[in-house]
């Protein structure tokens, strides 16, 4: 599971370099997310621009990643491709996460707010 993290203006951006997050990789995804976010103290942004397919297991792993975030840290999403956006909409999980058009917009919002 190729997840790459970088700090950008105080936001921890995790980019998924995977075409699919599905049943085959769900456990690995959640484990890797735990490693990357265990010391997070504020905003974490999961960049899904390269992900073209998420099934219900992959969705469960993304929700699981939110649930395992340390206190005071939040998990937000950016750059959902159409098929991925559809899964979040169908399951109403788009109401649980802050979803941003892209990472630049997400970071910009933080600048304006703070």
């Amino acid at each position: 599971m190729n997840l790459v993290s970088e700090m950008c203006d105080g936001v921890l951006i995790i980019t998924a370099h995977e075409d699919r997050i599905n049943a085959a990789g769900a456990v690995q995804f959640k484990d890797r997310m735990r490693e990357l976010t265990q010391n997070a103290t504020s905003r974490v942004l999961l960049n899904l621009e390269h992900v073209n397919f998420v099934d219900s297991s992959g969705l469960g792993a993304i929700v699981g990643s939110l649930k395992q975030m340390p206190q005071n840290a939040t998990l937000e999403l950016a750059a959902l491709t159409p098929a991925v956006e559809k899964v979040f909409r169908l399951t109403r999980m788009d109401s649980v996460f802050a979803v941003h058009t892209d990472t630049a917009t997400a970071i910009g919002e933080d600048r304006q707010a703070g």
């Binding site: 469960g60 975030m69 399951t91 109401s95 649980v96």
Partner: peptide, 20 residues
């Protein structure tokens, strides 16, 4: 019909497949 208006720790991580 999952109730998503809950604490984050209570969110469902499965049971989406049949709804889809």
């Amino acid at each position: 019909h999952h109730n998503l208006d809950c604490a984050i720790t209570d969110l469902p991580e499965g049971g989406f497949g049949w709804n889809i």
